[in-house]
Design a protein around this nucleic acid. Structure first.
Lengths: 193, 193
DNA sequence: GTAATATGATACAAGTATGTCTCAAAAAAA
DNA sequence: TTTTTTTGAGACATACTTGTATCATATTAC
């Protein structure tokens, strides 16, 4: 709230950035991490952590909102291709480098959800993705026999999976992006079924 | 340990079953649930919970081992078809009804892992799945250009995803099994890429 | 029916997490 | 430089969680 005000001390933006970054990494590894652990990971005093985020619940929700806004911004500034399939591919390309944000949302959703603001932005993003998929169905590039909701869930899960696989194997964003697009569209089967 | 002994009081097997069942459901919703919450969910006293499981860590690990043994037993008693692809399909068919066990393992792995026994059984199952996939590659039914480790991760993620989708939409095991096999093998794209 | 035993309720001690507060020191702003 | 503001360290009260122990009750096995 007040932290987002225009006149921010240089120390405040540094502290806040360190807290946000460290929290995403730490809470992804251990969602049950305490405020003390978060403060240590961020290299910040525990009191400072509480000055920036009143409670742990507020911290998770505010960071979730940030993550949502970041992905929204990243996708919003693209000039989208004509074909919905190309739009979806482009989304994957631009989402992959920030997939830890995406994974954070997915894995901490039970704690993040509850804030009306977070829910609103989330619903909006789901809606956009669902729209692209439905359009791609009409254009004949996505199978029309599958429920859109299932495809959206599959998309989310696959992006999360791809990010874990990338970090585990130390692959480049480009490589794992291709892997995901490929698996998403064509599956792993060699033949028609 | 001693709870597994042959001469078990009827009350003990009831309590234990209630604890195991409730824990799987509850910890899947809220991995940070306390022992008190677990006891309430299981409908047993907190003291009884501690009589059956010395610590929360022990509880998670013992239940994880149970889940692994259940899936192992379910797959072990199948007489496997000749073709590896049919084996994989059959695994999905038999895993889906117990996919909450599978999801439990996936989602609580950071807490379950650490027990040598759990790790051993887990590695064994991963190995078997990887073997089926490699055999299917040789038989030409699974794409040979994809890393087996990626396919295994994809399989796990998809099964987890399918289970959530099933519970959310109230679908039958059969319906979501077909959905998963279909998506796993053919992806969601309508055309070749 | 009787003896054995698992159970629930409860109390307890120790440890940990949370959130608030104060104050001297350091860093930024003026 | 001087003033303002953030910071870190720590104290503090509260609440929660953990794990153990006790004891009367109810269920089970015999």
């Amino acid at each position: 709230m007040s932290d987002l005000a225009k006149n921010a001390d240089a120390r405040m933006v540094r502290s806040r950035a360190a807290i946000v970054d460290s929290s995403i990494t730490l809470l992804l590894q251990n969602p049950g991490a305490s405020m003390s652990e978060i403060a240590v990971a961020a290299g910040v005093g525990r009191a400072t952590l509480y000055r920036h985020f009143e409670t742990k619940e507020a911290l998770v929700q505010e960071i979730s909102l940030l993550c949502l806004q970041e992905t929204e911004a990243a996708l919003g500034q693209l000039d989208m291709p004509e074909l919905a399939l190309d739009q979806i591919k482009l989304c994957i390309v631009h989402l992959m480098p920030m997939a830890n944000r995406y994974s954070f949302l997915l894995n901490l959703w039970s704690e993040a959800s509850g804030s009306a603001q977070v829910d609103a932005v989330y619903i909006d993003q789901l809606y956009k993705l669902a729209n692209m998929i439905e359009q791609a169905k009409v254009e004949g590039s996505i199978r029309a026999d599958l429920d859109t909701e299932w495809i959206v869930a599959h998309f989310d899960g696959l992006l999360n999976n791809a990010w874990w696989y990338k970090t585990k194997k130390g692959l480049s964003d480009e490589a794992v992006t291709q892997l995901m697009i490929n698996t998403f569209l064509a599956g792993v089967g060699a033949n028609e079924i």
